[in-house]
């Protein structure tokens, strides 16, 4: 029989192991989420990240090795973003009708996200590098990373902050907006997409199809607006 260490070193050098692990971790996370009947605390992304993170730490595997396998999953983000055209098309008439509330909610939500994120972090002593990484965190990951680079932030850090933002939004949105008594699924979804991009949109799709469609639009629109707002607001903290 071959030495298990040899098998391990073979597995570690290829994408098979961590690609499989990513899918299995997600399957477990999704199972738990479903068993909890969609309780927001059991967010499937958060659960899978915890499982995989623990596994990486326990086996001493560097993130780069992990990502070699996980990149195939990561790559599908692009085509999935294009796919958001599907719910958008199905709701086009309602979207056009809601143009004014959407425009104002976009401006208010996007500005609130950038100003409050930088203000709070600055008050708690964050340095300029961290502020620059933090400024675009409500935009979708590929956009946020590009903005962070331009502002002098750390793009890899920004990617993590973006994801954490999305998970916080996905977990909090339903109980919070229920408590506020907001019933318009268009506005609920749209605000979620603006503040919590794709992870929030994924959550909105789980809760209500209308919310999902409007979240996709919110995400797309805030990708553009954050590119304009983040550099301006960051200037205030220089």
């Amino acid at each position: 029989m071959t030495d298990p260490l040899l098998i391990w070193s073979y597995l570690e050098s290829g994408p098979l192991l961590w690609l499989t692990a990513t899918l299995v971790a997600y399957w477990i996370g999704d199972r738990i989420f479903r068993l909890s009947r969609g309780k927001p605390w059991f967010n499937p992304v958060l659960l899978s990240v915890i499982v995989l993170g623990t596994l990486l730490l326990a086996t001493g595997t560097p993130y780069e090795t992990y990502f070699e396998g996980a990149q195939f999953v990561h790559f599908m983000l692009g085509p999935a973003t294009v796919s958001l055209a599907l719910p958008l098309h199905a709701n086009l008439r309602r979207v056009r009708k809601a143009a004014l509330p959407m425009a104002l909610a976009l401006l208010a939500g996007s500005l609130t996200a950038v100003v409050s994120a930088l203000g709070l972090a600055w008050l708690l002593g964050a340095d300029f590098g961290l502020l620059a990484s933090l400024a675009p965190k409500s935009a979708t990951a590929p956009v946020a990373i590009g903005i962070s680079e331009k502002l002098g932030g750390d793009p890899a850090m920004t990617a993590v902050l973006v994801l954490m933002t999305g998970m916080i939004g996905a977990i909090a949105v339903t109980p919070m907006l229920n408590a506020l008594g907001l019933r318009d699924w268009r506005g609920r979804g749209f605000a979620t997409g603006v503040a919590a991009h794709g992870v929030g949109t994924a959550r909105a799709l789980q809760v209500n199809p209308t919310a999902g469609a409007f979240a996709g639009i919110g995400m797309g629109m805030n990708a553009v607006l954050t590119g304009l707002l983040a550099p301006l607001v960051l200037q205030l903290f220089r």
Partner: peptide
């Protein structure tokens, strides 16, 4: 597109693990 959107959450896992 329906298939991808039904599994949208999965696609964010690799970046999320970057937190480690």
């Amino acid at each position: 597109a329906s298939f991808l959107l039904q599994n949208l959450s999965l696609l964010f896992v690799p970046v999320g693990v970057g937190a480690v």
